[in-house]
Simulated scan of single mutants.
Amino acid sequence: MKEFPMLTTIGFDADDTLWHNETFFRLTQDRFTRLLADHSDPVRLHDRLLAAERRNLGAYGFGVKGFTLSMIETAIEVSGGQVPASVIGEILAAGREMLEHPVNLLPHARATVTALAAEYRVVLITKGDLLDQERKLAQSGLGELFDGVEIVSDKTPEIYRAAFARHGTGADQGLMVGNSLKSDVLPMLAAGGWGVHVPHELTWALERADPPTGHGRFHHLPDLSLLPDLVGKLASPHNR
Rank of each mutant, 00 (worst) to 15 (best):
G193Q: 07
A162E: 12
V149G: 14
L189N: 03
I151R: 02
A171M: 00
L131I: 03
M176D: 09
L142I: 08
Y160I: 08
D147A: 15
V149R: 06
I125D: 07
L189C: 10
Y120S: 15
G174F: 10
G195T: 02
S153T: 15
G143N: 03
I151Q: 07
G148C: 09
Y120W: 12
V177Y: 07
R121G: 05
K136W: 02
R135M: 10
G195E: 09
G148L: 12
W194E: 05
K136P: 06
Y120H: 09
T156K: 10
S180Q: 02
V196N: 13
L175Q: 04
L181H: 00
D147I: 15
I151D: 12
L131F: 03
I159M: 15
D129G: 03
T126M: 09
V152E: 13
V122I: 11
K136S: 03
F146K: 09
K182H: 11
L142K: 13
S153R: 15
H197D: 01
S140N: 01
H197Q: 12
A138S: 14
V123T: 13
A118Y: 11
G168S: 05
E144V: 08
R135D: 03
V122A: 04
D129A: 01
L181K: 05
I125A: 13
L189W: 01
K182T: 01
V177I: 07
V122T: 10
G143C: 07
E144L: 07
G192Y: 02
E119L: 11
M176A: 11
K182I: 07
D147K: 14
S183I: 13
G128H: 02
A118Q: 12
E134A: 06
S183A: 13
L131P: 00
Y120M: 12
A138D: 14
G141K: 09
I125L: 15
S180D: 06
T156L: 13
E134Y: 02
L175H: 00
I159T: 15
L181E: 07
V123S: 08
G170E: 00
E158F: 09
D132K: 00
G174R: 09
G170F: 00
D132T: 01
K136M: 08
A171Y: 00
E119H: 13
G193D: 10
Q173E: 13
L175F: 05
Q173M: 15
N179C: 00
A191H: 05
T156Q: 12
G170T: 05
S140G: 00
P157L: 08
Q133S: 01
Y120N: 10
P157Y: 09
G141P: 05
D129C: 11
L186A: 02
A162Y: 12
G193F: 02
L130R: 15
F164N: 01
G195W: 04
T126E: 08
R135F: 04
A165L: 03
